[in-house]
Design a protein around this nucleic acid. Structure first.
Lengths: 134, 134
DNA sequence: CGGAATCCATAAGGATACTG
DNA sequence: CAGTATCCTTATGGATTCCG
């Protein structure tokens, strides 16, 4: 009889796998929200559908290339839907899918942590830099 | 004759964006956990202090350059502490600070979402790519 | 309006070699 | 052991131009 049960060994293996193998789902999700604009786009879509031009206006500083690229990847991941109205000129709306919506509480949690603790981080940075400057 | 040229409007947008970045703690946190290795390091430190060499072994695929760089930035942000034991050879341990520990539930939430929904994302990607291939 | 395609500067990051 | 320094390749992303 081993010192660890099969369940314990499985759990350890799963933890190791989940955390450190490149193909783990967590890694992929982190890569996803890592993108500079993904969070901002999801945030902008959080309170309802938006037109392409609305998004580009709301997310100041985004280039047309990056906005399109971000929207495409989100569409590919099934997090947003793209709806084209073939009028003249064309009208394109983007909307969160149900799956994309389930991601919003996560964004909210990140936001909450940030608003609660980022001042501590800022303080720590100043202290660190002050020492490094000497 | 417009009141402002396109260039002027772009410049204003960029300035507004900079201001937004400066005051937005969420943006800063996202930038932080966006880093490819930050989440993995925090995860590895989640169950106790680790030596430098332990970390580099546990986080398969990280180069020593990126590991050091990541640890430095986390130390600067006050999320981990670096403890040097001046033995021969040197021994360096890294440990989560209380502040760093408060970030763990967030990582856990991300992990949970990923494990719950990444298969849907994968399915969506396959469907999207299948259409694009035609 | 909502993109696609191209060009190009910069930054990120890996490999390697060396050090206290 | 725990880094630092350097080189060099690749990825990122902005600007610009053109199109249905």
């Amino acid at each position: 009889m081993p010192t660890r049960t099969a369940a314990q060994r499985r759990e350890e293996a799963a933890r190791a796998y989940d955390a450190f193998i490149a193909v783990c789902p967590t890694r992929q999700l982190v890569d996803r929200i890592s993108d500079k604009w993904v969070t901002l786009v999801l945030c902008a879509l959080g309170d309802g559908p938006k037109r392409y031009s609305d998004l580009s206006r709301r997310i100041a500083g985004v280039s047309q290339k990056m906005l399109t690229q971000t929207l495409r990847s989100l569409e590919r991941d099934g997090l947003v839907v793209r709806e084209v109205t073939p009028s003249v000129p064309v009208r394109v709306d983007y909307e969160l899918t149900p799956l994309g919506t389930t991601l919003m509480p996560l964004i909210a949690a990140i936001k909450t942590w940030a608003e609660t603790h980022m001042d501590e981080v800022a303080t720590s940075r100043e202290a660190y830099d002050a020492v490094a400057a000497r």
